[in-house]
Simulated scan of single mutants.
Amino acid sequence: MDLQATPSARLSLNARAGELADVMIRDAARLRVGLARSPQGATFIDCGHRHPGSHEAGLRLAAICMGGLAEASLVPSRSGPLPWTVMVRTSQPWLACLASQYAGWHLDGPHGLPLMGSGPARVLARRESLFDEITHREDPGRAVLVLEGEVPPTPRLAQDAAEACGVTPERMTVLHARTGSLAGMVQIAARVLECAVQKARLMGFDLSRLSDAIGTAPVGVVHPDTRIAMGRANDAIIYGGQVHLFVTGPARSAKELAEGLPSRTSADWGQGFSDVYDAAGHDFARIDGGFFSPAEVAVTALDSGDTFRAGTSDPARLSGATGAPSP
């Protein structure tokens, strides 16, 4: 599948994300994020490691993850035990979600601890097999990388990433946060569309037919233990996420897409993500890719006006994500 839409040639994801990162730098004090520069000149924006960050920093981080091609906002939840939900909207679903937001670039942090890399720097580095399908390219004028993990990145990591992207360290911006931080939990909830688009890809759906996409997912409550935080954040998508995709082409394939997308189609459905993660030996590659998908899906076939719905949210399974103390 060749994912190259005509408008993408005029979009520089790194330039757009860089502009958003510059605004974060300007608003650093208000967002409670930290700023640093490596000896080589790379810029670090700490959204949730040594600095506390904030929910607003998480929304900004999500928009940067998607190369500035989507909007993320915090809205009240309609139902369920988690009071707040992230809403994401984009008119460039595959470009925003797969070419930029997908956390497919794995880097080694301090002490060998892994850091998951997302953001538009991936387009420049092209270290993933996914880019055999995504032919969108852009000039390496600037690189913006988002890292999630237990530890903050080092100057050496930023230098290596800059080399992989073909830019000097002075043109490298690295944003980072712990999974269980305020910003970390928000930016993970904002991946609800990414999960749906990636599952559509695994189903063999022609992603060039994706037109617009809207998604929501509850925000799990923070936790200092990365495993618990990861479980809360992913459960919120798997059991509480909702996505509406707008596609061109035959209504029949839109119906098939809707029926195949919800998380309940996975054999792992019904289990907490933390338990599935433990059973997989903490190896994401061993987890059924279909499990990483929203609970409830609607797909509208633009050519016919038909909308197909499948799956259902299961708020009761989100009780572990609330952070309520045990009785």
Results as ranks from 00 to 15, higher is better:
Ala57Ile: 11
Arg60Val: 07
Leu61Trp: 08
Ala62Lys: 03
Ala62Gln: 07
Met66Val: 01
Gly67Arg: 04
Ala70Phe: 07
Glu71Ser: 14
Ala72Asp: 05
Ser73His: 11
Ser73Phe: 01
Leu82Glu: 08
Leu82Tyr: 07
Thr85Met: 12
Thr85Gly: 03
Arg89Asp: 03
Arg89Val: 08
Arg89Ala: 13
Ser91Arg: 15
Ser91Glu: 10
Pro93Ile: 11
Pro93Asn: 11
Pro93Thr: 09
Ala96His: 09
Ala96Tyr: 00
Ala99Ile: 00
Ser100Leu: 01
Ala103Met: 14
His111Ile: 00
Pro114Val: 08
Met116Lys: 02
Ser118Lys: 01
Ser118Tyr: 04
Arg122His: 06
Arg122Glu: 02
Arg127Pro: 03
Arg127His: 10
Ser129Glu: 13
Ser129Ile: 00
Asp132Ile: 02
Glu133Trp: 09
His136Asp: 08
Asp139Thr: 14
Pro140Arg: 00
Pro140Lys: 02
Gly141Asp: 14
Leu147Ala: 04
Gly149Pro: 07
Glu150Ala: 15
Glu150Ser: 10
Val151Lys: 05
Pro152Ile: 12
Pro153Val: 12
Pro153Phe: 07
Pro155Val: 10
Pro155Tyr: 05
Pro155Met: 10
Leu157Pro: 10
Ala158Val: 06
Ala158Asn: 03
Ala158Asp: 04
Ala161Arg: 05
Thr168His: 02
Met172Val: 12
Thr173His: 05
Val174Arg: 09
His176Trp: 06
Arg178Asn: 11
Arg178Ile: 01
Leu182Cys: 02
Gly184Ser: 07
Gln187Pro: 10
Ala189Glu: 07
Ala189Arg: 10
Ala189Cys: 08
Leu193Arg: 02
Glu194Tyr: 02
Ala196His: 08
Val197Asp: 03
Arg201Asn: 04
